[in-house]
Design a protein around this nucleic acid. Structure first.
Lengths: 228, 228
DNA sequence: TTAAAAATATGATATTTATCAGCTTTTAGC
DNA sequence: GCTAAAAGCTGATAAATATCATATTTTTAA
């Protein structure tokens, strides 16, 4: 099994704040796992009992709303940690995580993370900073959800995806979301998302080939998303 | 000036994790302030440079959306801290805070809080736990904003207010929000909020006397908010 | 390879919500 | 107490969005 202290991925998350010794210890008790596209990492209400470090792949993190529709609240990619919040609160997960494509993840048991939280203030502080940043971001999403139209939210989401993910060899955003996934990010009916995507395509703002999405006019999308 | 180590209010927030000595030190450098109804505690983009501890009163924390409407993302009351996030991120505030009624707040300069964060792991951990809890809550709000109708959100908001705030001597929720404020919490037009409030009143779910809101049928409101 | 299932697409319609206009009531300042 | 301004209210209408229906395309699995 690969060693955490040699893993590049940890540079992208709070594990970078751990010392060599701590990494060696974590490395020895972590487990690695392949998660196939569509497989569930964890369910709402499940005790996660640890933290996932994503070595490769993408997953969607969602919550079922009262009306029975899934709302995607995060997209997690290579280098991201997953599950810190439930761990810190000592609660079952509020959210469900499903792989969007094949993933490679490492799982670090709770006790190991807790030990580092207690012993390494730098690590704790880094987690805290990340959480503060996530919280700021969440506030912004709340404002967008509350105040923007579906069209504005779609434009904003396309820009977000364009910014967050790499391009594939064709130049499309390298995350293969279904139309339903996209609708579940912006919080609308699948048909509405499809309709607006077609409209954007017709206007030359994007191009669509199956699940591939190509951003053609960033500025115009920005204008739409800000209501200009 | 009153002393932090004798202040009951700190029991309700992370300051409870500080030692007596730390409290005495904080007490000696904090400033107290009366903030009148309608006054601004801080603006979007302002360097807060510290943390507010609310001794009394309520304030609304909002963000201006691109389309020019204010979205209220938090209501802060007696015992709450305000401004930790900007402090931890070392960023200007993302949000604006305005007093809903007359407030009494203490202001603790940034350096003092940072010193405690560095020296007192219990304090840091308590802040971290609070932040994790806020983040979970924010995710839930995102789902509600994205998936619930305005009517569902109004019902949920009324229940939230009923839960969070005390009752006044008449039995109304003890926070005096304008119709516009309520609309800015649920993210809708003021007229829509007014219309739905009237509808709820007509149906006997609530009663309204000026800004006073009386919850009459909690169960029915719960049913509405969950789409039952 | 092919049939069945799932995803995508589009039109028609219903529902929800925003906007605009005008009116009444309440509040704040003199 | 009076007056202007703000807040609250209601109706009419327009715009946004959801829902339902159905057709087409793509994917999956036997």
């Amino acid at each position: 099994m690969s060693k955490c202290e040699q893993c590049i991925v940890r540079q992208f998350n709070s594990l970078k704040a751990l010392t060599k010794d701590e990494l060696v210890r974590i490395s020895s008790c972590k487990t690695s796992r392949i998660v196939k596209k569509g497989e569930v990492l964890f369910e709402e209400g499940e005790h996660i009992n640890g933290v996932f470090c994503v070595k490769d792949g993408i997953c969607k993190v969602s919550k079922m709303s009262d009306n029975g529709r899934d709302q995607i609240v995060h997209l997690i990619k290579k280098g991201d940690l997953l599950g810190e919040r439930s761990l810190i609160n000592d609660e079952v997960s509020n959210l469900k995580a499903i792989a969007v494509n094949d993933m490679q993840v490492c799982f670090i048991p709770k006790e190991e993370i807790v030990r580092d939280l207690e012993k390494n203030p730098k690590f704790t502080m880094d987690i805290l900073k990340n959480m503060a940043s996530s919280l700021k971001n969440a506030d912004n999403v709340i404002v967008d959800m509350a105040q923007k139209t579906v069209k504005q939210r779609l434009a904003a989401t396309l820009l977000y995806l364009d910014d967050k993910f790499e391009k594939d060899t064709d130049g499309a955003i390298d995350v293969s979301l279904s139309r339903e996934d996209i609708a579940n990010i912006i919080g609308t009916a699948t048909e509405s998302a499809i309709r607006l995507l077609s409209e954007f395509k017709k206007k030359g703002l994007i191009n669509l080939k199956g699940k591939q999405v190509f951003i053609l006019d960033t500025q115009k999308l920005k204008d739409i998303s800000t209501g200009f």
